[in-house]
Nucleic acid binder design. Sequence first.
DNA 1: ATACTTTTGGACAAAATTTGTCCGGAATGG
DNA 2: CCATTCCGGACAAATTTTGTCCAAAAGTAT
Lengths: 107, 107
Amino acid sequence: MAIVKKHTTFGEHLRQLRETAGMTLREVAANIEIDPSLLAKIERNQRQPTKQIIKNVSEFFKVNEKQLLDEFLSDQIAYKILDEEADLNVLKVAEEKVSYLKTLRNG
Amino acid sequence: MAIVKKHTTFGEHLRQLRETAGMTLREVAANIEIDPSLLAKIERNQRQPTKQIIKNVSEFFKVNEKQLLDEFLSDQIAYKILDEEADLNVLKVAEEKVSYLKTLRNG
DNA sequence: ATACTTTTGGACAAAATTTGTCCGGAATGG
DNA sequence: CCATTCCGGACAAATTTTGTCCAAAAGTAT
């Protein structure tokens, strides 16, 4: 049985989609209407995709857009935690704050 | 027994510290060396504190700096989740990604 | 090795976001 | 009323991010 990566970065996922389709950066870039160099950077997590780019990617590769968006968001959060060398516990606190802030908004 | 808020925002916490000390914005602002209006905005979560400000706050109110930093970080994450109307599940995915990215870095 | 294509990566201006300050006005309390 | 505190909009300055260009590296085939 092959080893399957469950959790990769957004960029790695995008690259997998492209390579599975057997396409070059130039080809995919043309289809999702961005510069090939930008696509390359996104695949290497050196640039962040805009929402529009994520939308185009999801349409082109026929994957769920919301899933892609969430995947990208979890990337951003993970990178932030690493950047700040923060305790993983902040994620649990954040979760509780989301509930708290929601009640603040609603009443 | 009084109801105690466990999870407030960074700004609310800061305001509590100040009010507990019975000080005005102007007074605290002078001590942590920022404009009173900026402090007011931070308390209302309209501006983000810099690391320096957090450091000064922790020193002035004698609270743990790392804790404050983590509290602020969890705020940022919570606000992001709300902003994007994302599923709370992204936090769990993010947690797994942190581990993954750590192994990427180390080997 | 040459020629061709793909990918990487640096540099940089343009665009977008964030920051801190100023100031007028509202609220609070003598 | 007067004095002080707090709020909040506006704005320039500072900072960050973005997308593009181009050259060099890496890969492929002939």
